[in-house]
Design a protein around this nucleic acid. Structure first.
Length: 465
RNA sequence: GGCCACGUGGCGGAGUGGUUACGUAGCGGACUGCAAAUCCGCGUACCCGAGUUCGAUUCUCGGCGUGGCCUCCA
């Protein structure tokens, strides 16, 4: 099956061919760990999780390497640490903030059914690689040292701006901010900057005496290099990262290694709004993953429902996050769960139409349509839903145990009670005592058991969703 | 101001130069003592204007609207 992906570099959907099919390599920009991740952060995590699953399916599980970084050096982190732990030394406070936030992030995205990447490198563990890259750039003339800063000189790179499709002239004309005095060109960007005495700092490159810290972009160049090599296949993130972040990553990496590309395919997910408005703290419509899972609009939403709600829209389209979207996803998830309630994924196969839809630039909505199509074999739906991350293995534990004849004491007791009541109700029905029959059904309902009178005359029951 | 994306039925949303998915909601029906679940049927949409064309929702140009980037940001 041919995989086609939209490449921001060429603005075209193109056939995907890995540099090395035995080692498919993908890098996605991960979170800056200073606060709960919000629903906008969840979008790329879910989207690229689906791509990761698809790549593993197409090339083999052991053949794909997925790297998603954790940014643990950043001014926002420093500010948050000082605010939350004013009495601790800053470095210790920073460690507490980043560790806590990283744990929260993992809990949240696990709940959304996302697989962990193969490597989750931390910026602070790659300062050496960053210094190495910076030294290379200075030596080869792409970067310069000025007032203890190291800056990348954009004018030295002939096709700077290619990803964002902007020429230097256009960008300078649009520059609205004050230009720092140490910059040769207004668009030059920081690779390394000096730290104040109370800030985190590391030995500086290129003969700078004062300890310093990295600029924002260099960490991704360093970590992708360390874990994926000088060039790799896919680099992903939110569309807002195209400029300047990804443009600058490309500049750093290509000029360090003198390569024509950094990543072959650049993929960017579209932005998300909340109830038709831009999500922002000032509007008060900021939605964190944690809120969604526990209490948003009066209830908690299962991770699978959030995942489904996210994948209903193609990843490059803008997405409006609304209650209606979640309610509909909840209904659909209920239908899916009902379909697979006695299914066994081990006996099913991944539905080819679902894979085909995803292989066409991750058309997740069409894939979901194929999954929910009437008449699908329930074992196939189970297998495919599991593969898509919509179901978890434990969703099928009861079905499997049931098939294997394993029951817990609680289940046995429940079954005894329920089957006695069902028998009593059927006896009442045989006497056309509808009042008693309905009373027993209500009693069962109160216990969380739903009755179904089947067409063949039998009566079955199940635990209410 | 510069660059870019998007605009499809009540809602979500795919797709296509001509035959107009699918889901959800709604309505009608089958099945039921009544329910639940399931199944069947119905609705007939593509921002506006101009152009290309035998024919455009689909291509081109212009407009309007929404959003993004240009500054930390998924």
């Amino acid at each position: 099956m041919e995989l086609r992906l939209f490449n921001t570099l060429t603005k075209e959907k193109e056939p995907f061919a890995p540099l090395d099919p035995a080692r498919v390599r993908m890098y996605v920009c991960g979170p800056t760990v200073y606060d709960f991740a919000h629903i906008g952060n969840a979008r790329p995590v879910i989207v690229f999780d689906v791509l990761y699953r698809l790549l593993r399916h197409l090339y083999g599980e052991g053949k794909v390497k997925y790297v998603r970084n954790i940014t643990d050096v950043d001014d926002k982190i420093n500010a948050r640490a000082a605010e939350e732990y004013p009495k601790l030394p800053l470095n210790e406070a920073i460690r507490l903030v980043t560790e806590k936030t990283e744990k929260q992030f993992h809990e949240d995205v696990d709940a959304l059914g996302c697989l962990r990447p193969d490597v989750e490198p931390r910026a602070t563990e790659h300062i050496g690689e960053m210094r190495d890259l910076i030294e290379r750039l200075v030596k080869s003339g792409f970067a310069y040292v000025e007032q203890e800063h190291v800056l990348f000189e954009v004018g030295k790179m002939s096709d700077y701006g290619k990803l964002a499709r902007r020429s230097l002239d256009e960008m300078e004309a649009g520059a609205r901010v004050e230009v720092a005095p140490y910059k040769r060109n207004p668009m030059d960007f920081v690779l390394w900057k000096p730290s104040k005495p109370n800030e985190p700092g590391w030995p500086s490159p290129s003969g700078i005496k004062t300890p310093g810290r990295p600029g924002w972009h260099i960490e991704c160049s360093a970590m992708s290099w360390k874990h994926l090599g000088e060039t790799f296949d896919i680099h992903g993130g939110g569309i807002d990262l195209v400029f300047p972040h990804h443009e600058n990553e490309i500049a750093q990496s290509r000029c360090s290694f003198h390569t024509p590309i950094m990543a072959k395919t650049w993929m960017h997910n579209g932005f998300l709004q909340v109830e038709g408005e831009k999500m922002s703290k000032s509007l008060g419509n900021f939605v964190t993953i944690r809120e969604l899972l526990t209490d948003w609009k009066g209830r908690g939403w299962p991770g699978s429902v959030v995942r489904l709600a996210m994948l209903k829209t193609h990843y490059r389209q803008p997405l409006d996050w609304t209650t209606d979207r979640l309610v509909e996803s909840d209904v659909q998830m209920g239908v899916l769960k009902n379909t697979v309630r006695i299914a066994n994924p081990d006996r099913g196969a991944i539905i080819p139409e679902v894979v085909a839809a995803l292989a066409d630039d991750l058309n997740s909505h069409l894939a979901l349509s194929a999954l929910m199509k009437r008449g699908n074999d329930s074992n196939d739906v189970a297998k495919t839903g599991l593969w898509l991350g919509l179901f978890k293995e434990e969703d099928f534990k009861i079905g499997r145990d049931h098939a294997a004849g394993i029951k817990t004491a609680v289940q046995e007791a429940l079954e005894k009670v329920a089957s006695d009541l069902v028998d009593a109700r059927n006896a009442a029905r045989a006497n056309k005592d509808w009042k008693e029959s309905d009373r027993i059904r209500d009693e069962l309902k109160a216990m969380g058991v739903v009755i179904k009178d089947n067409k063949d005359g039998t009566t079955t029951w199940e635990i209410a969703r």
